[in-house]
Amino acid sequence: MVLELDRVTVSINNTPLFDPVTLRVEPGQVTTVMGPSGCGKSTLLAAIVGDLNPVFSLQGDVRLDDQSVLTLPMQRRRIGLLYQDDLLFPHMNVGQNLGFALASSLPRRERLARVEEYLALAGLEGYAERDVASLSGGQRARVSLLRTLMAEPRAVLLDEPFSKLDTAMRDQFRDWVFSTLQERAVPALQVTHDKEDCGDGPVYLIQEGRFA
């Protein structure tokens, strides 16, 4: 799966927030868009996922494997989004949070097996029954990414997902996220203001409305 942005820009009152963005994210690649707070990075992700605040308007095209997704409602675009906050559902345990992302038609036994399989990927074997409130920040972040991946998204958007983690955990988790996305060949677009978070993939910069 390839994610393409073709001359995408977001405007408010006919004033574009940044120059048109054209980029291509290959399967397993993590592309980073950097920029200071308020430059429109998160708005760009909201536009791609289909959750743009109605005061903004989107120009250009967003394609997945050459198919435009802009005509689809957000729930049918099959794009995963990872925020700064993990947004784990507090009324569900870890296994239920992960199982939520699976298709409801899947038999129970298979669901449980898939949950365990994914938990093992993150070194969280046996955590399925745990209350999410009892997890550490790093564990929560990992469960959140696992949940996004379990929905088998065609692309993943990362909205500063490492910014709330402490330095030691941050490097470890970032490496794990990038390698997991690479293994699964999911294209990922990350926005951040911290260059430490950039991976090996291409890095773009939005500054004072310029895209470079």
Binding site: M74, G80, Y83, F100, R147, A151
Partner: peptide, 13 residues
């Protein structure tokens, strides 16, 4: 955002 995250994960409203 919880509801929107759930919508992205499950693909229905």
């Amino acid at each position: 955002r919880y509801a929107r995250q759930a919508m992205l994960l499950r693909g229905n409203e």
